[in-house]
């Protein structure tokens, strides 16, 4: 029972990681680097969008990703009784 519990906890944790890290990859490597020239044709006020992602947007998303991770994990810990 406890073993099963731990396994499920770990599986859910891995699922969260996969989702969050995909977003991490998307905003930095895809938007900020691979597709930067395409996105640069779109403008966000004074910024070209690709340039903005590389120098601003990606960083904002990184901060949000960690905040979301903290919330998700705290909830998960409680759900499985692993919180303190």
């Amino acid at each position: 029972m406890i073993l099963e519990n731990k396994k499920n906890y770990w599986k859910k944790n891995l699922k969260y990681l996969a989702i969050l890290l995909s977003i991490w990859f998307l905003v930095s490597f895809v938007f900020g680097i691979l597709l930067v020239d395409e996105l640069n044709t779109i403008r966000l006020g004074g910024f070209k969008l690709g340039f903005w992602f590389a120098q601003q947007g990606a960083i904002y998303v990184f901060v949000m990703l960690i905040l979301i991770y903290i919330r998700l994990m705290n909830k998960l810990d409680k759900e499985f009784g692993f919180d303190e």
Binding site: L17, L20, L21, W24, S28, G32, I33, F51, A54, Q55, A58, I59, F62, L65, I66, Y69
Partner: peptide, 17 residues
């Protein structure tokens, strides 16, 4: 120069997760 901006902050996502 974006390599430093993304590189030195994005690493924290890896570190935290």
């Amino acid at each position: 120069g974006s390599v430093y901006l993304m590189g030195w902050t994005g690493g924290y996502v890896l570190l935290a997760l």
